[in-house]
Simulated scan of single mutants.
Amino acid sequence: MDKQSKIYVAGHRGLVGSAILRTLESKGYTNLVYRKSSELDLLDKQAVDQFFSEENIDYVFLAAAKVGGIVANNEYPANFIRDNILIQTNVIDAAHQYDVKKLLFLGSTCIYPKFAPQPMKEEHLLTGELESTNEPYAIAKIAGIKMCESYNRQYGTNFISVMPTNLYGPNDNFDLKTSHVLPALVRKFHEAKINNDSSVTVWGTGSPKREFLYSDDLADASIYLMDNYEGNEIVNIGVGKDIPISELAEKIKEVVGYTGDIQFDTSKPDGTPRKLVDVTKLNQLGWEAQTSLDEGLKNIYQWYLENAKEVVAN
């Protein structure tokens, strides 16, 4: 990508999109295009087509998606499969119709089989049953990956797909009903601290292991791959190591400065027992994550204190 290339970041206000936008700006890219959902409804094919026809876009980072944790996936399965299929279909098809040079599609490691071998390699996709609480979202994301592959085969497009592991960072979702585990725990421990609660309850047994990637590292990897990779094979993006949720909770407790107890509600689901990705392919392409979990947790808690006062108030 040239510094003057017209680059569209779809989903620029979310965790991933905002990190990509921020990182592109820091690297000196000056011709960046983005729209709020109130300005461009990606569920509306006609609106998306009009946008692409008017903007003459060179590159697309497709980070727009409906995302959430176990609670949200359980309560809104129709929304997750419908909205994600519509968003990615409209954007991918428009990228083809209006001759975009290259598109990067953001998948997710949560769409690998529930009992995939660990660490999960790219070839493990579609080799086993999915996690039931996550299936509608996973089916939609798999369709997006296969759509990119199919357009490449049929139309000669240059669309690539990446598989980020669990993400966290600035502009994360801290809503306790719809967020992922890390931001939910940050909010829980912070509120327990200011309320002087004697304990914090964590869903499940605490035994599942998760890998966590700082969003700015994902953005850096995505831009690197946009510049240095093409092909139909997906690429994992992660740090290559994981920790139990119980240990994550202890780390967040320490960062927040909470002094009470941690209790585990074993009546709640654990989700997938382990989700560690094999990042050999990514490392061989020349990229490795730079932000440690300890450093990232300090960053995200500071961001939460500075920018999420309305979340704390709620």
Rank of each mutant, 00 (worst) to 15 (best):
P170T: 02
I142R: 13
Q4I: 10
H190W: 11
Q263C: 10
G17I: 05
E149D: 13
M226A: 03
L213I: 02
D217F: 04
I234M: 09
R153Y: 11
N299P: 01
I145F: 09
R274K: 12
G156K: 03
D220S: 14
S222W: 01
G204W: 08
V256W: 08
I111T: 13
I142Y: 12
K121Q: 14
I237C: 06
A10K: 02
R274I: 07
A219V: 04
K309D: 10
K121F: 01
T259D: 14
Y229H: 02
K241Q: 12
G286H: 07
V91M: 08
Y224G: 00
G240H: 05
L285K: 11
T272V: 14
I243L: 15
A308S: 12
M226P: 01
N232V: 02
P113V: 07
A65L: 09
F52I: 05
D44T: 07
N134K: 11
T178R: 09
C148H: 09
I234H: 00
G68M: 09
L225C: 00
N90D: 06
G238W: 01
E131F: 01
N171F: 12
Y98M: 08
S179I: 05
G69Q: 05
K6E: 06
L104C: 06
A138N: 09
Y29V: 02
L167F: 02
T157W: 03
E288H: 12
F80E: 04
T272K: 15
Y34E: 02
S199T: 06
C110K: 09
W303A: 08
A78H: 07
H12P: 00
E39D: 14
H124F: 15
K251W: 08
C148K: 08
G128I: 06
Y98G: 03
F52G: 08
L282S: 05
